[in-house]
Computed example of a mutant assay.
Amino acid sequence: MEGGKPTIVTNPEGQRTMPSVVAYTKNGDRLVGQIAKRQVVVNLENKFFSVKRFVGRKMSEMDEESKQVSYKAVRDENNN
């Protein structure tokens, strides 16, 4: 709220929305948002996106979807 009115907070790049993307660099630095999204060409296996679609689902329910992402989805002890 600014001056009693709701305001949209911008991210450090000045944008009003932020992509749900996280990437890790070779040094282990964590990148979030648009800068992580730009890593697609040079850092495909360390870029994570569309993760929320897998939360709370069994591995058998997501076989096809897990093939559409660049990272490896792994099963936990409850087959999630």
Rank of each mutant, 00 (worst) to 15 (best):
M1S: 15
E2S: 13
E2D: 13
E2L: 12
G3Q: 02
K5V: 14
P6L: 15
P6W: 04
P6N: 07
T7S: 05
T7N: 03
T7V: 14
V9F: 01
V9H: 00
V9D: 01
T10W: 03
N11Y: 00
N11D: 12
N11W: 03
N11G: 07
P12A: 08
P12E: 13
P12Q: 10
E13T: 04
E13D: 14
E13S: 05
G14D: 14
G14R: 07
Q15Y: 01
Q15T: 00
T17E: 06
M18S: 00
M18D: 00
P19C: 01
S20I: 04
V21G: 08
A23S: 14
K26R: 12
N27Y: 09
N27P: 06
N27D: 14
N27K: 15
G28R: 11
D29L: 14
D29W: 13
D29E: 14
D29G: 07
R30A: 14
R30V: 15
L31C: 10
L31K: 10
V32A: 08
V32C: 09
V32S: 08
G33F: 03
G33H: 06
Q34R: 12
I35T: 15
I35Q: 15
I35W: 05
R38Q: 12
R38M: 11
R38P: 02
Q39L: 14
Q39C: 14
V40H: 10
V40F: 11
V40M: 11
V40G: 07
V41Y: 04
V41Q: 08
V42T: 13
V42G: 09
N43A: 13
N46C: 05
N46W: 10
K47S: 15
K47W: 08
K47D: 02
K47R: 14
F49D: 01
S50R: 11
S50N: 10
S50E: 11
K52Q: 07
K52P: 07
R53H: 03
F54K: 00
F54Q: 00
V55A: 09
R57V: 00
R57Q: 02
K58H: 04
K58R: 11
S60L: 08
S60I: 11
E61Y: 04
E61K: 03
M62N: 04
E65Y: 05
S66I: 02
S66V: 02
S66T: 06
S66P: 03
K67C: 05
Q68E: 14
S70K: 04
K72H: 02
R75S: 12
R75I: 05
R75Y: 04
R75K: 15
D76H: 05
E77M: 09
E77T: 06
E77H: 07
N78H: 11
N78I: 03
N80F: 10
